[in-house]
Design a protein around this nucleic acid. Structure first.
Lengths: 303, 303
DNA sequence: ATGTCGTTGTAGCGTCGCTTCATGGATCTC
DNA sequence: GAGATCCATGAAGCGACGCTACAACGACAT
């Protein structure tokens, strides 16, 4: 029973196919297919079954993939057991983050890790849909992800995925500096009736605030723009094209924008680090993760 | 990090050297040495150090070998996870037992396992010193071993070795059918003053009884013969060459020998099954082990 | 019906690991 | 103390395994 074949099986599960798994493993689909065949021969039971023009794991395949996680964890524990005797943790760790998270955390993280010495960091920004964050962990060691406050967790959380809370960012109202509300200390939903809204495309808990506004006004608020990049949102807000909701620590650098806390509605997002269970056992990864948590601590508690 | 290399490291530890490990792994010493070198290169720390003309594991090597046990266990769990979907457990299991244990348990075990179907048993009798039983688990799946009642446990018990109690055999006094004590229901130490003793060579708790006899008589008992094989002991006892102590269920088949319980002294041996932690995870092995425990249950409780 | 996508076979090639043989120490024996 | 022996390790050669490249097949979409 080959370790790489088990790793491959897990990739096929998380990526949902042979070709996709081959991509993240830097292999050809043929190699993946052959590994699966060999593993199935070794196990004595079929691990995959064709479904349409793709395939999916059988019950045995799922069970083996689950067990493969434990194997990978044990192997990385073994590595870590040796690394203890290494005078200094060395190696490279790859970190990815969504755009605003990268902006907020990566600069400080890089200086912190550089201060440790011996660890090289490979950073990248990955802007993907909510459901694809988990899949990134096949390509990247530490994935900085975000999800709506109170939203559902991640698939495989606990068993094959480790989730480390980094910080909770409240969503503040962003208005132009010359907006009528700009000098207030805070706002309430009823203050926002009639405003034009700039919303993000995907899964942000803007809805909670907008619902409160709707409840206060009796009519649904107007959403005029749908922009994902916060810098663009800030530019639009500053130019007076509407108001928006921005994570407190992420935006606010634009001189023409004011951020105001919204009272009476709990809205925010959670920023978390996602790691595959086996990767989380590597000592270098743990060191980087510690620094990441410390850096995030500068901006508030993870709870 | 190769699975076979980890397995090799464990074998080097338990066998105490490269050559010995190579023997049980069916490899040449050179291959073992190369695997160790590759593993050490991979780990980044030396795993072995030369000591005299042999070698021993470094602290890092010990740590890695410990972790390797967990890896092997996880791998076998993965195998077992697939085997659940196999309609019937199949495969071959190797079982070894010391002479009298084999005589007592193997016939029944073979018929029981044959009744299950699909499992082939490779039995062998291994008569080794007390300290070498654990080492046998590198060559044999299930090792039926024995140790003095109240004696020390096995090295690595719990972590890298699984110990399954099979039965506790009291030691009875064996006398010739025409001996003066032959018609008694039981004997006490003071009855045995002046007898000539036939003892076994290695580590049996005969001492407890002999000490009691010495306390009753005031002088050490005479030990005239040292014989390991119980059949030979019985033959000698039957021929009137002395008395001896025999496990209750093992001997007694010789028509010229009577077995008498010894009151006032707790003496006996424990018969246990020894398995490597990873081997114990295999489903076929578990099945065989269940049958072995059941068979042993015919001769008394393991406690 | 044709094109495309995704998986699975086949041939060829590189690489890795094992065996054989040879070398270097360290211990034991005489 | 010198030779013999045992043990571990290195170098060369060979075999096997796994990967890539290419082709074939089935399924879905247009």
């Amino acid at each position: 029973m080959d370790l790489r074949a088990l790793e491959t099986l897990r990739a096929v599960r998380t990526q949902g196919g042979v070709s996709a798994a081959a991509t993240v493993l830097h292999l050809t689909p043929s190699a993946v297919s052959q590994q699966l065949a060999a593993l199935s021969r070794d196990a004595g039971v079929p691990l995959t079954e064709r479904i349409g023009r793709g395939l999916r794991l059988t019950a045995a395949g799922e069970a083996l993939a689950d067990a493969a996680v434990d194997v990978a964890v044990a192997v990385e524990r073994a590595r870590a057991a040796c690394a203890v005797f290494l005078d200094r943790p060395e190696g490279t760790v790859s970190v990815s983050a969504f755009q605003s998270g990268a902006q907020l955390l990566l600069p400080g993280l890089l200086t912190r890790v550089a201060a440790l010495g011996g660890i090289t960091l490979e950073c990248s920004d990955e802007d993907v849909a909510q459901s694809e964050f988990a899949g990134l962990t096949d390509r990247v060691d530490v994935v900085v992800a975000h999800r709506p406050d109170g939203g559902a967790g991640w698939p495989g959380e606990g068993s094959r995925l480790r989730v480390v809370p980094l910080l909770r960012e409240p969503l503040d109202l962003a208005v132009a500096a010359d907006h009528q509300l700009a000098d207030r200390d805070a706002v309430r939903p009823e203050d926002l009736v009639g405003e034009e809204w700039i919303a993000v495309r995907q899964g942000f808990p803007v809805a909670a605030v907008l619902d409160a506004v709707a409840a206060a006004s009796g009519s649904p608020p107007r959403i005029t723009q749908r922009i994902n990049d916060f810098s663009v949102v800030e530019a639009l807000v500053a130019a007076g094209h509407g108001v928006s909701l921005l994570p407190r620590h992420t935006g606010g650098t634009h001189p023409g924008v004011r951020l105001l806390p919204v009272r009476g509605v709990r809205a925010g997002r959670r920023v978390e680090a996602l790691l595959r269970a086996d990767v989380a056992e590597r000592v270098v990864v743990r060191r980087v993760l510690d620094e990441l948590v410390a850096e995030a601590g500068r901006f508030g508690s993870p709870a």
